[in-house]
């Protein structure tokens, strides 16, 4: 199957996914009791003011009509106006999306750099000391709640040791790097802005590591399991039999094939980190999508809740597309199926 055909098919699949997401989010967010017009007007507003606001925001129209207007706008790339900030939702999201993508990518890279080697080592020395140690590490990493880890990391590395900042993306003294991608690490590297690079790196370390630690568990487990499975295969035995060193067999022949399930997990993790990083973003004052979503939910900001859901659905689909393409690079036979 041609690569572009597969990509085209995936893109077509996006349409029903989006419609489903908007319908579901719309239904859920509108079934929660709460009056957004009152939230805008404030507690002391009289009914006349609330009514004026309700009318101005189209909240007095029938629900199906509100949904129709929303979908029509969505087709034109308009996610509506945030009830809370009164700005276009697209603007609010574009302000925060780069921060979340940067954090998720950073955590994902850490997960790969730590999780995959630990998984390989663990499988290679099955039931030996390195395996026991790595399994213990994985168990602890998976058992510790993220919010607790975040608070403890902050307490130790910011409050007591003073090595890293408590949160945010940059320090007051350091200007943000020129906007190219919105990812501060990348932008400061591309513009050779050393001060901003170090500052951004210092700021992303704690939230990045905290976010990564939870995910490393799954990556290590998956890599270990699939490595063990691959190492039992006949072609591995054949490779060993023909005299290849164990190191070469593991790294060259087994590792590549064992990566496929791990890549699947990585794709899904990236998607879930965009939406699920809100605890880490909240505690580390990271100005990302998760933080925006959490605030919108508390304030019944329907339009932002829906906007964030649509964007996350989009990124999920995109991440899955990347995973599919990675499969084909890792195992060309998949392309033929």
């Amino acid at each position: 199957m041609k690569l572009y055909y597969l990509i085209g098919r995936r893109i077509l699949q996006v349409i029903p996914v989006f419609l489903g997401v908007t319908l579901l989010t719309f239904a859920v967010s509108h079934s929660i009791p709460g009056d957004p017009a009152r939230a805008i007007a404030g507690i002391y507003a009289n009914e006349q003011t609330v009514e004026a606001i309700r009318h101005r925001w189209g909240l007095d129209r029938p629900v199906y009509e509100q949904y129709g207007i929303y979908v029509k706008g969505l087709v034109q790339g308009d996610l509506g106006v945030s009830i809370q900030s009164r700005r276009p939702v697209m603007d609010d999201i574009s302000d925060r999306l780069p921060a979340t993508i940067e954090l998720a990518l950073f955590a994902l890279i850490l997960m790969c750099l730590i999780g995959i080697p630990v998984g390989v080592v663990s499988a290679n020395w099955r039931n030996k000391l390195p395996d026991h140690l790595s399994r213990l590490f994985v168990l602890i990493g998976g058992a510790v709640p993220t919010f607790w880890l975040a608070l403890v990391a902050q307490l130790v590395f910011f409050r007591y040791l003073g090595w890293l900042p408590s949160g945010g993306r940059t320090s007051d003294m350091i200007a943000s790097p020129s906007h190219i991608s919105g990812l501060y690490l990348l932008d400061s590297a591309l513009t050779l802005n050393g001060a901003a690079l170090v500052d951004s790196l210092e700021h992303i370390l704690l939230p990045g590591i905290t976010l990564a630690l939870a995910g490393i568990t799954s990556i290590t487990r998956m890599t270990r399991a699939s490595m063990l499975e691959v190492l039992q295969r006949d072609y591995i035995k054949a490779a060993r039999a023909k005299g290849l060193s164990r190191r070469k067999v593991v790294l060259k022949h087994a590792f590549k094939n064992a990566l496929i399930p791990t890549v699947t997990i990585l794709g899904m993790m990236f998607g879930s980190m965009l939406s699920g990083a809100f605890v880490v973003e909240w505690i580390f004052s990271w100005p990302g999508l998760g933080s925006l979503a959490a605030t919108s939910i508390t304030n019944l900001d329907y339009t932002t809740i829906m906007g964030v859901s649509v964007v996350i659905a989009f990124v999920y689909v995109l991440a899955n597309l990347v995973v599919d393409v990675s499969y084909m690079i890792l195992n060309p036979r998949i392309r033929l199926e």
Binding site: D35, R38, A39, I43, L300
Partner: peptide, 8 residues
Amino acid sequence: TWPVLFEK
């Protein structure tokens, strides 16, 4: 949350 309580 306050908006939900307010509705009630």
